[in-house]
């Protein structure tokens, strides 16, 4: 699966299946501070991502 990080860099993960929350924690991201878009749809972090999925992680700026 492919993960597009907030800085737009792309990581390819070799795992076949994992809960998004687990993936975020492995990447050092607090799941409650981002929005995750899986294959174009916003999903909660307890959804499972599988091989071939694309995850886009959106981090929002604070204030302003």
């Amino acid at each position: 699966m492919q993960v597009i990080l907030p800085d737009r860099s792309v990581r390819t993960l070799s795992r076949t299946s994992a809960p998004i929350e687990e993936i975020l924690l492995e990447l050092g991201i607090n799941p409650t501070t981002v929005i995750v878009v899986k294959n174009g749809k916003v999903v909660p972090e307890d959804v499972t991502a599988k091989k071939g999925d694309e995850l886009r992680i959106l981090r929002f700026s604070h204030g302003g």
């Binding site: 501070t33 604070h62 302003g64």
Partner: peptide, 25 residues
């Protein structure tokens, strides 16, 4: 309302809002 939910509400309803943070923050 938690910040993440405000971000999601904006994401679902508003096009073109700015995600960048202030360079002086």
């Amino acid at each position: 309302i938690p910040e993440r939910e405000v971000a999601l509400y904006a994401f679902l309803h508003v096009e073109g809002f700015d995600l960048a943070g202030c360079p002086y923050a």
